[in-house]
Design a protein around this nucleic acid. Structure first.
Lengths: 135, 135
DNA sequence: ATTCTTGCAAAGAGTTTGCATAATA
DNA sequence: TATTATGCAAACTCTTTGCAAGAAT
């Protein structure tokens, strides 16, 4: 594999971000640092980095694939009020995994866990009213 | 809302299936019963049925949306060997939900849990060798 | 008669890919 | 020089939507 400035930038952006960015978001940030970069290159390199195990890919958070600097498998909590994505406590997920293995003899390779709801902060500040009265 | 033969058929297909069918799969089956039915109608009605709470939509199992006759939120176990989709034990998932709420004050509205691995049957029959030696 | 639903085809979003050019080794 | 990566645009997959025609109330 040959070095490329583009790949270095793309890796740096994901590693710097706390926001589980989409390919499009990585592309937008990358263009600030290297205006000539193309979206295709971003997609290609994100997948290479996933293959190399340097970043992780998250599916099912919303319609778009997202990319994550954290390598360990972990769940995500998506707040429907502030739209922030929180990382779920590893321990809880590990417990689930162990229980599934014990219960059904299913050997886990990976998991994709997205819990949608209202985060502690939004609950505390009562920002949720609209959510519950919407329908 | 007005009755339509198409909607009746689409609902019946999802309710009969144990396979968490995609829209395309529902469409294929529907055409056997009503050859003139269109894919757009299948998509439209699947979403109406989801809105009405008569079926559930599953995201993140693979690239395509899938539809589920089971109304209660539940996780899915996807076997990478036989590609079957198993329903996860409700109790395990409820425990996870409770733990997340206790731990982080996050109020769960819904969840999307997909655990990928090797099912008990494939393990027992040692059909997994290729999986582990592939890379 | 009015309203809802359909089939069709076009458009949309997100992602992947073919190809000639450019950069790396 | 040989190989890998790039930018661009076209293609691809899955899904949604506009519209005129058809079916249900």
């Amino acid at each position: 594999m040959k070095y490329s400035k583009q790949r270095e930038i793309i890796l740096a952006i994901v590693k710097e971000s706390d926001k589980h960015p989409t390919a499009e978001e990585v592309y937008m940030e990358a263009r600030k640092r290297l205006p000539s970069i193309s979206l295709g290159t971003v997609y290609r390199n994100l997948h290479i980095l996933v293959e190399l195990g340097m970043i992780k890919q998250i599916k099912g958070l919303d319609e778009k694939d997202r990319f994550d600097k954290t390598l360990k498998d972990h769940g995500h909590l998506l707040c429907t009020v502030c739209h922030k994505v929180y990382d779920a406590d590893d321990v809880l997920i590990d417990t689930l995994k162990d229980n599934i293995e014990k219960e059904s003899g299913f050997v886990t390779q990976s998991y994709n866990i997205v819990v949608t709801g209202i985060c502690h902060t939004c609950m505390k500040e009562r920002r949720y009213e609209n959510e519950f009265t919407r329908n």
